[in-house]
Design a protein around this nucleic acid. Structure first.
Length: 209
DNA sequence: GCATTAACCACAG
DNA sequence: CTGTGGTTAATGC
């Protein structure tokens, strides 16, 4: 993006800080803005027909929240909630649309983002449908190491319940699966501290799980 | 049938 | 919020 466009974005953007557990956007709420994560971590989640909460994805810095708002400024179909202290930038839809139509480079970046996002949903969809708990949990643990913390040793900011909602199982199953995978020496774990000790085996679990 | 897997429930730290 | 144990239902040899 050119400096002018950045400036344009900045001028039309309102920065807000969120604490862990605070709602960034709420399912069912009127939507008039698109959000951009500047820093921190959040979850995108949705209330299912059973009333249970499902985590659709984890949002890392430099990604958008609520892009779908572009197609109609109606109601949010999902929620976003902070997991770690987060700084979020809200851009009103009009300004955002303006930028899209004015700037092909920007539009192209958005399309790239949407494409990558969709691919990752496809993969997650298949993984959730075909793997059992061990494999799904391994996927999640590897995801946090590779995509979020960029470390094999990290402090997970999600609760066991969040983790369960992410991989579509109950929190009890997460507890048991974590214990099992830790007892086998593949990971080290104390509370929310996760230490990947044997990545090869973890990857194998992810594939065969 | 028998084993495995995972949800559901209750209860304790 | 987290972990554990018992129970129960579904699925696959």
């Amino acid at each position: 993006m050119s400096p002018e466009e950045l400036e344009y974005l900045d001028m039309n953007c309102t920065e807000v800080d969120f604490k862990p557990g605070e709602a960034i956007i709420r399912q069912g709420q009127f939507s008039s803005h698109i959000a951009f994560m500047k820093s921190g971590l959040a979850k995108i989640h949705m209330q299912g027909p059973t009333g249970r909460d499902q985590v659709l994805k984890i949002v890392t810095p430099r990604t958008y929240i609520g892009l779908q708002t572009i197609i109609s400024d109606k109601i949010h179909r999902y929620s976003a909630t902070g997991l770690e202290p987060a700084r979020v930038c809200f851009i009103d839809i009009r300004s955002f649309k303006e930028l899209i139509s004015r700037n092909p480079k920007f539009s192209y970046e958005i399309i790239i983002f949407l494409c990558q996002d969709e691919i990752s949903y496809y993969e997650r969809f298949v993984n959730l449908a075909q793997k059992q708990i061990g494999g799904r949990l391994a996927d999640a643990l590897l995801f946090f190491a590779h995509e979020v913390y960029h470390e094999d040793h990290y402090r997970l900011s999600l609760s066991r319940g969040d983790l369960a909602a992410l991989i579509g199982v109950t929190r009890e199953s997460v507890s048991r699966a974590l214990k099992e995978i830790a007892d086998s020496g593949v990971i080290g774990m104390k509370g929310k501290e996760i230490h990947i000790l044997d990545k090869d085996r973890l990857i194998r679990i992810s594939r065969t799980g």
